Amino acid sequence: MKSLANEFFSTMAKGAESHQSENSDQYDLVVNGIKDERDVSRQVALVEEMVASGVDAIVIAPADSKVLVPALRRAIEAGVIVVNIDNRLDVEVLKQEGVSIPFVGPDNMAGAKKVGDHLAANRKGDKVAILEGIRTSYNAQQRLKGFEAAMQEAGMEIVSSQSADWEMSRANTVASSMLSEHPEISGILAANDSMALGAIAAVKGAGRAGEVQIVGFDNISAIRQAIEDGKVLATADQHGDQLAVFGIEAALEQIQSQASGSDVSIEDVETPVDLITAEILSQP
């Protein structure tokens, strides 16, 4: 996985571990993650370590959509089944490397569009800013497109769009600068909930709590509380606790397929992504 410092990925790990404990007769599980979302070289090294240790399958949420592909190609050549979750690997690089890796995950653009549409429908103004994820990540690119589509459709102006590398502290710094440079900002669309938390701190620091609406993506527990407290308007739930499970089940299916001699390739699987608002959280 990516950074285990991010609650979304620690939740993903717990979901995988829970699934394994309930299916301990079917497979053994090794959980790994990197400390920093940008530490792509460490994630490449983890892939190589797992191959060397003799695993049968790797389920990966890549920190970078392009850089991980050669390492995963080598894993496949070594006989390891690879399933891509969360952040889709780059299609062109996969073609260049001559490999096909199934993607199991949500439509990030559609999820971000739902969140953006909700902000537009409840807006306090027409000027917004976007906190992007790491720009080489496919899911960051798709969420940006979803936000942009929602704002364009609603006739709202994006006055600033910058990357905060998925990180809370970086988002606090970037959002603070945005609010200082563009005091007319009435909404901030954050491509993940960690950055939304940073935006909350920035808005508070600017003395604009209650004036600037914030939306996120991931539905971590801290954001659910912030939604209930009125500090965040909405987020998108891509069911992180189940995302790794969907990938694991796809990998197990492929292992069983190979064992039976049929060796049927895994197809891409689109998983759910749902809008989360205060109204939804208040439902029993």
Rank of each mutant, 00 (worst) to 15 (best):
M1G: 13
S3V: 07
E7D: 07
F8Q: 04
F9E: 01
S10D: 13
M12R: 03
G15H: 03
A16N: 01
Q20Y: 05
Y27S: 05
I34K: 03
K35L: 14
K35G: 14
R38L: 15
S41C: 03
A52S: 15
G54A: 08
D56P: 00
V59P: 00
A61M: 08
A61E: 09
A71I: 06
I76G: 04
L89F: 12
D90H: 11
E97S: 08
P102I: 08
F103N: 03
A110W: 01
K114E: 13
H118D: 11
K124R: 13
K127R: 12
I134P: 07
A140N: 10
R143I: 02
A150E: 04
A150M: 06
Q152A: 15
E153K: 14
E153N: 11
Q162H: 09
N172C: 05
S180C: 11
P183A: 10
P183D: 11
I185S: 09
I188L: 15
N192P: 06
D193E: 02
A196L: 03
A199V: 06
I200F: 02
G205L: 00
E211G: 13
E211N: 15
V212P: 02
D218M: 09
R224T: 13
I227F: 01
A234M: 07
G240D: 01
L252P: 01
S257T: 01
A259T: 10
A259M: 12
A259S: 14
D263A: 15
E267D: 14
D268R: 07
D268W: 07
I276R: 02
E279S: 10
P284D: 12
